[in-house]
Design a protein around this nucleic acid. Structure first.
Length: 781
DNA sequence: CTAGGGTTAG
């Protein structure tokens, strides 16, 4: 066992900073006296020394004086005493020498401690443990382990102090797994029943998630004290055994132990894990009774709990009661505000904290920047960027990722890219931030390019990566890359992931493969509200309203609660499929049964549904009932309905509303012109066209495109530029004959120009989508 | 004379 530790020790010897070699002085030479004198200026010697300069002390008296100095943290006086002892020829016994050694350790003077240790004529376990502790406190783990090895080799007693010290050392070195080797030794020497040793073991096993072993150790402790109970509660809480943590907590209280601040932090963590608000509140009650509310850690745990449960008021109350000089509770508050749509409050807290002279850390900056990103406040973001550079935190990966997020969210992708390129330690989140940035900007191609670059650079993709790349494919309506990403995820653990699954459903739906979307949906192990919403709106956008409603019925059999977006999907499904009665029923039950307040999107769907079903009057009435200012979308929906039902007057009013809010909207101009055209009011058509020209509004030409064997073919109306135009025309001619034979009658009214019917017919046939379709038939794709 | 437990995160 020990050899194993030592081998590891030597392997990492070059990583440990070493101060032993620095100016090692010997206490047996006069050099020490000068150093001690320099360290202890005149008049600062301990009172005992000053009062009785000539008296003789025995070892015991020196020991007592040294202890006095340690208690007062007065290392200067202690060194003066040591100097005096040396002058008299060093008359200390082992007991006093150990105290002296502890003095140097506590004062952080490790080279002095080491020299003293080396020059002691005899040492015991206490000497070793004292110095091991010193090495451990100074992060000199290699020296600490080496000293432990020497203690064992030289045959000193292995007592409880040795075991607790070495176990804690292993945990701090990240070698908690080696606890079992020490445990074997402890078991042999029957120290396991000791509460100190047992608790150290529980802690070590807790770190490497051996909860059951921890529990066995706990059960073997003969006299369990408060710390042992607390350690076991913390072990359960940290390893996700929240019920067990609460159970043990109540057991210890029944036995009569009074929990302390450490116990409370552990048990509160368990309450958070269980999402048990009531238990948490009763623990909060105990905290107040035991007067631990002002404790930093207990307070932080309470803050964590209330902010996670969304109890903003209670969180504020706790925060009020807390000490305000530590950065952690401030950071926690800022971060929770930033994550819960209270971004102004986050910024406000950041300012308050600076006024209270609390120095922000990387967490504070990252959260504050997150708030800036959400609010798209580039000005604040830039200010904080300056702060961050000033305090040198711009190289922190959390902070630089958050900065990239701010610039990306504010549309400054170039700035994000600069930070990304310059970032000395970028990680997967940095890549994800850039990919998401491009997706949000609508540049799916750049997002996908970045994604493949990321894979090439062997950066570990996460569920966020895959879901963003899938979003990019969806936004491009590009099935091919979407399928490729799907097949990559199948090779990883992420194809079972809910977030990735949801993006797959959305991607397949938006790329036209609704069957594949359903396949992914059916295979999902864990469906959340997003999964249901994706499937519902998928069916809705494919015009499969009844399928969408079936999914909603399935959803109601689970305990997944529909949200705002669910009903946007449902209502648009109804309006796409013309399901008037169902739509109205769902709109009503949304408020009555599901506690979802109708928003603009819901009203838009309903206006469109009522309008397209011919109830233009009801649509207008609904618009009047909207408790807030109706958006452009609502008026566009009404306008669309007016176009269908040729209601020129209402259409004109609706278009007027749209153009008040969005004067450059080309689609509305065209729709208005179309209404007039349908009514054959060509003079009005002309005036709309003239108006468009005057305002510089241009109709974007409709484009259709299709990917065939790696090439994308684009078509616009009447376009003759395709190299296979002759073939396409031939195919169009053939299709025309076949459809006419099958009884198709061209809808000339769909062409809204004042031309003869045969010209209208030609327009209909060279429509971009038809040409695209013809090409598909030709190539047999 | 030596020793045991804890908070925040994109």
């Amino acid at each position: 066992m020990l050899r194993l530790i030592c081998q590891r020790t030597f392997q990492c010897a070059n990583f440990a900073p070493h101060c032993k070699t620095n100016a090692r002085i010997s206490f047996s030479r006069c050099g020490y006296a000068a150093q001690a004198a320099a360290a202890a200026p005149l008049g600062q010697h301990p009172p005992v020394h000053a009062e009785r300069p000539n008296s003789e002390f025995d070892s015991h008296a020196y020991a007592a004086m040294l202890q006095h100095c340690i208690r007062n943290g007065d290392s200067n006086s202690a060194m003066g005493l040591h100097c005096r002892i040396l002058k008299k020829g060093g008359c200390l016994d082992l007991f006093a020498l150990n105290i002296l050694l502890n003095m140097y350790v506590k004062a952080g003077m490790l080279s002095n401690a080491t020299t003293l240790f080396d020059e002691m004529s005899e040492r015991n376990t206490i000497s070793f443990v004292t110095l091991i502790q010193g090495f451990a406190d100074s992060q000199l783990f290699v020296d600490a382990v080496e000293l432990f090895r020497r203690l064992h080799r030289e045959g000193h007693e292995l007592n409880q102090f040795v075991f607790t010290t070495i176990l804690k050392l292993l945990v701090r070195m990240g070698w908690a797994e080696l606890a079992w080797t020490i445990h074997a030794c402890i078991h042999k020497l029957a120290h396991g029943s000791n509460a100190f040793v047992g608790t150290a073991l529980i802690d070590a096993y807790s770190v490497c998630s051996h909860v059951d072993v921890s529990r066995d150790v706990f059960d073997e402790i003969v006299c369990k004290d408060m710390v042992a109970w607390t350690g076991m509660v913390a072990c359960y809480a940290e390893n996700g055994c929240f019920e067990e943590a609460l159970e043990l907590f109540s057991q210890m209280r029944m036995i009569g132990f009074k929990p302390n601040n450490y116990t409370f932090t552990g048990v509160l963590k368990a309450c958070v894990g269980l999402e048990a608000l009531n238990e948490g509140k009763s623990v909060h009650g105990c905290v107040m009774k035991s007067c631990y509310e002002g404790d930093l850690y207990v307070g932080t745990a309470l803050l964590d709990m209330y902010t996670k449960f969304g109890d903003v008021e209670e969180a504020r109350q706790v925060f009020q009661e807390m000490p305000k000089n530590d950065v952690v509770p401030w950071s926690l508050m800022v971060s929770r505000c930033a994550q819960s749509d209270r971004c102004e409050e986050a910024l406000d807290l950041f300012c308050q904290m600076r006024q209270a002279f609390v120095v922000p850390n990387q967490f504070t900056y990252a959260s504050t920047l997150q708030a800036c990103a959400t609010m798209e406040r580039l000005d604040f973001g830039k200010q904080i960027h300056c702060h961050v550079i000033k305090v040198g935190l711009d190289s922190d990966v959390f902070v630089s990722n958050a900065l990239m997020g701010v610039y990306a969210k504010c549309g400054k992708l170039e700035n994000s890219m600069d930070l990304f390129v310059e970032s000395p330690n970028r990680n997967d989140v940095s890549w994800n931030t850039m990919i998401v940035g491009y997706v949000q900007l609508g540049d799916g191609e750049k997002a996908l390019a970045l994604f493949s670059n990321m894979l090439r650079c062997q950066v570990q993709a996460t569920e966020v990566t895959y879901s963003s790349a899938l979003r990019a494919s969806a936004s491009l309506a590009a099935l091919e890359p979407g399928v490729q990403i799907h097949s990559i995820t199948v090779k990883t653990i992420y194809d079972k992931d809910t977030v990735v699954g949801n993006s797959l459903i959305d991607m397949y739906a938006k790329c036209g493969s609704i069957k594949d979307a359903r396949l992914v949906f059916d295979k999902l192990k864990q469906r959340d509200v997003v999964s249901w919403n994706a499937m519902i709106s998928g069916y809705s956008m494919h015009g499969l309203g009844l399928e969408a409603l079936k999914i909603f019925e399935m959803m109601q059999e689970t305990n997944c609660k529909p949200n705002k977006l669910t009903f946007v999907g449902i209502l648009s499904a109804c309006s796409n499929a013309g399901l008037l009665d169902q739509g109205q029923a769902y709109f009503n039950s949304m408020v009555q049964n599901y506690d979802v307040e109708p928003c603009v999107e819901h009203y838009t769907c309903m206006v469109w549904l009522l309008g397209r079903s011919g109830h233009l009057d009801k649509a207008v009435k609904l618009i009047q009932e909207i408790p807030f200012e109706p958006s452009v979308m609502v008026w566009r929906a009404l306008l669309g309905a007016c176009v269908i039902h040729n209601d020129v007057e209402l259409g004109r009013i609706a278009a007027q509303h749209v153009l008040e809010m969005d004067p450059q909207d080309d689609a509305t101009h065209v729709l208005l012109s179309n209404i007039y055209a349908t009514a054959r009011r060509w003079d009005n058509v002309a005036s709309v066209r003239k108006n468009m020209k005057r305002k510089g509004v241009k109709k974007e030409p409709g484009l259709s495109w299709i990917e065939n064997q790696g090439t994308v073919h684009y078509f616009s109306v009447g376009d003759t530029s395709h190299p296979d135009m002759k073939l396409i025309n031939g195919m169009l001619e053939w299709l025309k004959m076949r459809t006419l034979k099958a009884g198709h009658v061209p809808n000339y009214s769909a062409v809204l120009l004042d031309v003869e019917d045969d010209e209208k017919e030609r327009f209909l046939w060279v429509h971009s989508e038809r040409m695209e379709f013809a090409l598909v038939v030709i190539t047999g794709d």
